[in-house]
């Protein structure tokens, strides 16, 4: 259809759907009604039902995607505004993010391995918690499928944003800064957007965590591959280990 070739059509539709999603979210205040989740699901349904081409959508919503750049840069303003809060606990922040990002790599790799994933899928999953461009860079260098990594990263972000508040309440994390760190470390930018909804300190902590998690994950994956070889070598080693153990 002609309409589907128009930039103004997809941009307005996306804005309207997001506006609707935000209204629903503000009305019910349930994390499950996360505006990103509502908008993504509605737009995917729309594309499926109208049999529109996903490439038409991708091509014509680039202008919205572009603003992700300046918006992430603008997070630097939050870091500046809350610097006193950050400086007070800088060591605690660095230690907890470094530990959590290592736990993130080891846990996703172990669970995937135990479920029978091959070396390519393991390399694809390993950088799942970091912001998309870093994750793609890592996947390319460690033998993963970069486009699949990008898709997983987005899904992980939406998952973190949707279940994060509920999960943090469940495990009784009340400190705003700790909640923000959890969103930024586990769910990068999409988690950060949710953390900003929770409050300014939460948002600042999450923004800080995006960059730090990225840097720590790059370093840790590099060290893991340097010490133990690439993912297929690690997989062979584990296979032999489990055979011997039996």
């Amino acid at each position: 259809m002609m309409l589907f070739k128009l930039e103004v059509f997809w941009v307005s539709l996306t804005l309207l759907v997001f506006f609707g999603g935000t209204l629903i979210y503000n009305r019910y205040k349930k994390p499950f009604f996360n505006p990103v989740l509502l908008s993504v699901v509605s737009l995917i349904l729309f594309i499926k039902l109208t049999k529109a081409d996903i490439e038409d959508f991708n091509q014509n919503t680039r202008v919205i995607n572009f603003f992700l750049g300046p918006a992430v840069v603008a997070l630097g303003y939050l870091l500046h505004k809350q610097w006193a809060e950050i400086a007070k606990n800088l060591l605690a922040i660095l230690l907890s993010i470094a530990t959590a990002s290592l736990v993130g790599i080891i846990s996703v790799v172990s669970v995937a391995y135990l479920m029978g994933a091959d070396a390519i899928l393991i390399a694809t999953l390993a950088p799942k918690s970091v912001t998309t461009p870093i994750a793609i860079g890592i996947a390319n260098k460690t033998g993963g499928i970069a486009s699949l990594t990008a898709a997983i990263v987005i899904a992980v972000g939406v998952f973190g944003a949707v279940v994060g508040s509920w999960f943090l309440n469940l495990i009784k994390v009340e400190n705003a800064f700790a909640r923000g760190l959890a969103f930024g470390t586990a769910a990068h930018g999409i988690g950060t957007a949710r953390a900003i909804d929770e409050g300014e300190i939460n948002g600042t902590a999450a923004a800080l965590a995006i960059g730090l998690t990225g840097v720590f994950t790059v370093l840790q994956l590099f060290i893991i591959n340097f010490l133990f070889g690439n993912w297929s070598e690690i997989q062979h080693f584990l296979d032999r280990f489990f055979i011997l153990a039996h």
Binding site: T14, F18, V36, L43, R62, I154, G157
Partner: peptide, 18 residues
């Protein structure tokens, strides 16, 4: 810009469809 961060992720999310 920061307040609209959520919106700017929507195209990437829908892009999962590809």
């Amino acid at each position: 810009l920061v307040g609209l961060l959520n919106l700017f992720f929507v195209p990437a999310g829908v892009g999962l469809l590809a």
